[in-house]
């Protein structure tokens, strides 16, 4: 009851706000392979938006376009009021510092220790900070994921779930406003996957971040989603809350919930 009232209230506040990410008529193809075809969606502040789609449907392509790792063929992407497709390198780096990206393969630098992995984005950003602040931020990020004791270990020494959490800590270290999760639970056992889902929700609560969560794991959707969009044939095929989509009679939407 109380929770419901609260969500209604936040939804009202959010609906007045300018979305933090706004994607309009996005198109992207590789040669003859049309991956995104007129995809539009918006992400509101503090919201967990799940993009659901089969493998190969273009989910990773979508979030790589958002952060500028891929250049779309047409359409617009607006992040925190910046037109992502028309920024120079310095501006792009500044916007990217506000976006966290959790890679599907974690992308931990395997030649560096956990500490160096976490320090990397701090040292490379243009923010001026001293060693003491760096140490504090590294420790805070590691504590957030309960892995402070791994600080001097190498990524190869960690289990899959631990690596995912270290990657999440590295994503969080610059306190991003927006986080893009690329299949955060794929390849993990259900229990570890659930831990990651809980972390995603905890982070959303603690820092009030807005997130795109790309997945085809329905348990993950159930736990983290405020809103769900189904990516199919390159565009947003259906959109709604988890419950709405679960009750859907559309056969294409239904197959995700079986």
């Amino acid at each position: 009851m109380l929770v419901e009232e609260k969500t209604i209230l936040t939804n009202k506040i959010n609906s007045k706000q300018q979305p933090v990410v706004e994607i309009r008529h996005l198109k992207k193809s590789f040669g003859n392979n049309v991956v995104l075809d007129d995809f539009s969606i918006e992400l509101k502040k503090g919201e967990n938006l799940v993009v659901l789609g089969r493998s190969g449907s273009g989910k990773s392509v979508l979030i790589k376009c958002i952060i500028g790792l891929l250049k779309p063929d047409a359409g617009t992407i607006d992040v925190l009021g910046y037109d992502m497709l028309n920024l120079d390198e310095d501006e792009l780096d500044k916007v990217r510092a506000k976006i966290g990206f959790l890679f599907q393969s974690n992308a931990l630098y395997d030649s560096m220790t956990v500490r160096e992995n976490l320090e990397f984005p701090l040292r490379r950003s243009w923010i001026a900070i001293n060693q003491q602040q760096i140490d504090e931020m590294v420790l805070e990020a590691l504590t957030n994921v309960d892995l402070a004791h791994t600080i001097n270990m190498m990524p190869v020494e960690l289990s899959g779930g631990m690596r995912k959490r270290i990657a999440l800590a590295r994503t969080l270290i610059l306190k991003p406003d927006i986080i893009l999760y690329d299949e955060p639970t794929t390849g993990l056992d259900p229990i570890t996957g659930k831990e990651i889902d809980e972390l995603i929700v905890a982070i959303q609560k603690k820092y009030n971040t807005a997130s795109f969560i790309i997945t085809h794991d329905i348990n993950c959707v159930r736990l983290v989603a405020d809103r769900v969009a189904v990516l199919m044939d390159g565009h947003c095929y259906a959109e709604g809350t988890f419950d709405e989509l679960q009750k859907s009679t559309d056969s294409k939407v239904k197959q995700f919930f079986e």
């Binding site: 390198e89 780096d93 990217r96 510092a97 890679f103 992308a107 630098y109 990397f120």
Partner: peptide, 21 residues
Amino acid sequence: AELGSMKVTEQIDAMEVSGTN
């Protein structure tokens, strides 16, 4: 081999999004 494995495990992309060319 080093850059190849960094490429396929998305480490090169990770560098790019952390403000490093």
